[in-house]
Design a protein around this nucleic acid. Structure first.
Length: 114
DNA sequence: CTGATGACTATAG
DNA sequence: CCTATAGCCATCA
């Protein structure tokens, strides 16, 4: 069964815009779960294949992919991000440039609609 | 029950 | 850059 908080977590991940990334901890805080970053990892790990949740936009606080290097899912995550214009430098994403800033996004684009 | 394990992170050295 | 440590908590053996 899905964890008690997975719905809140997945809804938050849905809000990350195309071409941006958020850390596990940031998603946890945005979802109102405090510092429980691991819950985010758990929720994403149990995601059914073919889900419309943009799981690939969640990386760790260092701007690196947390999935095992060389795993299929790890390569898939990097491929999807690069497809959206996210730039990797030395295997790392510059979070100052690509990090999700909810308040700024809402200033520019208005409050989230769906 | 206990202990190990993670799609984690902040801090310290 | 690294390692160590502590906090975190669902899940599994």
């Amino acid at each position: 069964m899905a964890g008690r908080h997975s719905a809140r977590i997945l809804r938050t991940v849905q809000r990350i815009p195309t071409g941006a990334v958020a850390s596990y901890g940031q998603v946890a805080r945005e979802a109102g779960l405090g510092r429980r970053a691991r819950l985010v990892g758990h929720a994403l790990r149990h995601l059914p294949a073919g889900s419309d949740v943009p799981w690939h936009r969640v990386v760790n606080a260092a701007g690196r992919i947390s999935l095992p290097a060389g795993s299929d899912s790890g390569r898939e995550q990097r491929r999807r991000l690069e497809e959206e214009g996210v730039l990797f430098e030395e295997g790392r994403i510059d979070l100052r440039r690509f990090g999700w800033q909810p308040s700024l996004d809402e200033l520019l684009w208005g409050p989230p609609d769906p």
